[in-house]
Design a protein around this nucleic acid. Structure first.
Length: 276
DNA sequence: ATAGGCTCCTGCAAGC
DNA sequence: TGCTTGCAGGAGCCTA
């Protein structure tokens, strides 16, 4: 379940192995992903050179430059079960290894995605103009994201604060797990209407979002070597979760039994004593 | 404009 | 033991 920290960990892990390399072969074993793999992806990519990787929200951007061709990028989304890893030449693909980019030094960038919620798409020209990227709110670890923004955007909104925080137009990269954890740290009830939360409390929430995401990225870094080397599993569950997946268990702070509610079709665990 | 529901997919776990 | 059922999740799309 890659959220922003896992995508960032992936970017950092694969970048040194792919940047500057030429793609010599592309193998698509399963083109039916969340979006179909573009028909002409193979012919466009073979012979192209990979530029500097970047990330926007949970999207990975892979610039590719072919000889005498306009600039273009791959827009890669890992969905909820996708992973990218570096495999060695000759390493046999496993089940759900859907796409391989074979590089000129023999390394393979290999995409694995059991649930196929992810996709890889071809973007011609300036990637930032793609509508999927153009409408996104600020990065949670950037200066543009703060309590003032949350407060301003939420005025008049009756939507519960948890789905509000998970809206990509508000702030990107805050999925179900980190939304639940940040609301716990900030002491805010996930059911509370977004428009009825004070600026002071939104400042605490913004700080909590930054805190949980930054901690998760740091943890991802600790498992980077294993991740790139072969297990293909980022150190996602290693971190200590306070509420996510713990309904019925005691609150780590006050001992009260954690409750489960459904908000925006998503399970939301919280402590009714600590979160108001 | 806003809020809520539905959908894609597979693996896993729980229930019978 | 072997079946069925439900759940997990991002984000685009749809409807009221």
């Amino acid at each position: 379940m890659p959220e922003l920290p896992e995508v960032e960990t992936t970017r950092r892990g694969i970048a040194p192995h792919v940047e500057g390399r030429e793609i010599v072969e592309v193998i698509v074993r399963q083109p039916r992903l969340r979006l179909p793999v573009p028909n002409d992806l193979v012919e466009r990519l073979v012979g192209a050179r990979i530029g500097g990787l970047s990330r926007r929200a949970k999207y990975l951007l892979v610039p590719v430059q072919a000889e005498d061709a306009a600039s273009a990028s791959l827009l890669w989304h890992l969905g909820m079960s996708g992973s990218l890893r570096i495999a060695r030449l000759g390493e046999l693909p496993k089940k759900h290894d859907h796409v391989d980019l074979v590089l000129d030094d023999g390394a393979i960038l290999r995409y694995h995605d059991p649930r196929r919620f992810g996709f890889v798409d071809w973007l011609q020209g300036d990637a930032a103009r793609d509508p999927r990227l153009a409408r996104l709110g600020p990065e949670p670890l950037s200066e543009a994201f703060d309590g003032e923004r949350l407060h301003a955007l939420s005025r008049g909104r009756r939507l519960a604060v948890k789905p509000f925080l998970m809206d990509n137009a508000v702030v990107v990269g805050v999925g179900n797990i980190y939304a639940a954890e940040a609301l716990f740290l900030a002491g805010i009830d996930p059911r509370r209407a977004a428009g009825r939360i004070s600026l002071a409390r939104y400042r605490r929430l913004a700080a909590a979002v930054r805190e949980v995401l930054a901690a998760a990225i740091t943890q991802g870094g600790t498992t980077l070597r294993d991740f790139v080397g072969g297990t293909g599993e980022p150190g996602y569950f290693a971190q200590r979760l306070n509420v996510y997946g713990r309904d019925g268990a005691p609150c780590r702070r006050c001992g009260a039994e954690l409750r489960l509610v459904i908000l925006g079709q998503r399970a939301s665990v919280f402590c009714a004593a600590c979160q108001r």
